[in-house]
Amino acid sequence: MRKTLFRSLFERTLTEPPPPVDEAALAQLAAGIDRAARQRFGRGLAIREVDAGSCNGCELEIHALTNAFYDLERFGLRFVASPRHADVLLVTGPVTCNMREALARTYAATPAPKWVVAAGDCTCEGGVFAGSDRVVAGGVAAVIPVDLYIRGCPPTPTQLLAGLLALLVQPAT
């Protein structure tokens, strides 16, 4: 233990500078999100992740955001255990018929103002799972309103970070 801690003390920090905020994400947000909510949220956001039928690939990369390289928390973004504590729902997966109600209820349990970020190609109209009668036609947006899509299969942690950071950009007053 001491050895490991000692070694860590003298090592270069692994955390990398943040990626530039995703311009496309900013544009999506500028179009949809109400200004007052963005000002109210300020510099920190609590994120509740909801897997609505993903293949688990997206979860792995979302998990990676908390490792030392990306260190999501330094931006004031943190994952919370309950939708009741959340400002943002980060949804993955095409929304299976069997998860539809759980997703809708999680959304209902999240206090307003709230944002929905859909991560991964299959949140957008099903992706590779489109056409199955076991998933909801139209993807996440058919069940709850989506404010921001982060594309990729799965999106890399850098892409996820660039998208999430756009949420923290204050609108020009």
């Binding site: 095409p94 069997n98 998860m99 590779v128 799972f129 199955s132 076991r134 998933v135």
Partner: peptide
């Protein structure tokens, strides 16, 4: 809960 109907696809 995450049954997507993969075998059907």
């Amino acid at each position: 809960y995450v049954h997507k109907g993969i075998e059907g696809l």
